[in-house]
């Protein structure tokens, strides 16, 4: 790991992210296949672990104290043991090369999973929202594009029109989320 790698990951550099993703997969796959899983499970768990990793390093107060591989391994193991537990199996440790140096990631993983649960309705709401609303909101809240840029991209005559569109989309999304919550709460 070099500092550049971490910076690249933080800034969303696709080349570096892809390289690091590919670099550590086999390590995780071996661990999961050795513990009752198959390569589909490995892929599934690794992808989730990688998201958690990327999510965590976005947090300015997060400090990576171990190698990227060790950190990914710890998260993947945590996720895999959770899943084994759900299906009524137990994990067992074979050749756990990191046993001594594994950081405690329970809090990181649990916080992520809690958020996923909390945002459940938002996930489905955004999914149902349709275009152009989805892109407008993503461009604004995630890409942090200016209203001028959004107007340009989506062909609105000016930033004010784009703002109105954004507002309408936001209200629609709120409504979808409210419907989802209502359904869940009976």
């Amino acid at each position: 790991m070099s500092l550049n790698d971490l910076d690249g990951l933080r800034s969303g550099d696709r080349f570096i992210t892809g390289k690091i993703y590919a670099e550590h997969y086999s390590l995780i796959e071996r661990m999961i296949v050795a513990q009752k899983g198959d390569s589909d499970d490995a892929k599934d768990i690794y992808q989730e672990a990688f998201i958690i990793f990327l999510d965590n390093i976005q947090n300015p107060s997060f400090e990576l104290t171990v190698k990227i591989s060790t950190y990914l391994y710890a998260i993947a193991k945590n996720l895999w043991y959770k899943r084994l537990k759900v299906i009524g199996q137990q994990g067992f440790v074979i050749d756990d090369r990191f046993a001594d140096e594994l950081p405690d990631v329970t809090e990181n993983v649990d916080r992520f999973l809690e958020e996923e649960q909390k945002y459940d309705d938002l996930y489905s709401g955004l999914d149902q929202l349709g275009e152009p609303c989805k892109s407008v909101l993503t461009d604004f809240f995630f890409q942090k594009l200016s209203m001028e840029a959004i107007a340009n991209k989506h062909g609105y005559t000016n930033a004010d029109n784009a703002k109105t569109q954004k507002y309408k989309c936001l209200m629609r999304l709120k409504k979808l989320v409210a419907v989802g919550q209502k359904r869940r709460n009976g």
Binding site: I51, D55, Q58, K118, Y123, L126, F141, F142, L173
Partner: peptide, 13 residues
């Protein structure tokens, strides 16, 4: 905040 988190994670996925 939720929109930001969810869109980021969806894009990452």
């Amino acid at each position: 905040k939720g929109i930001e988190v969810v869109t980021r994670r969806t894009a990452l996925r």
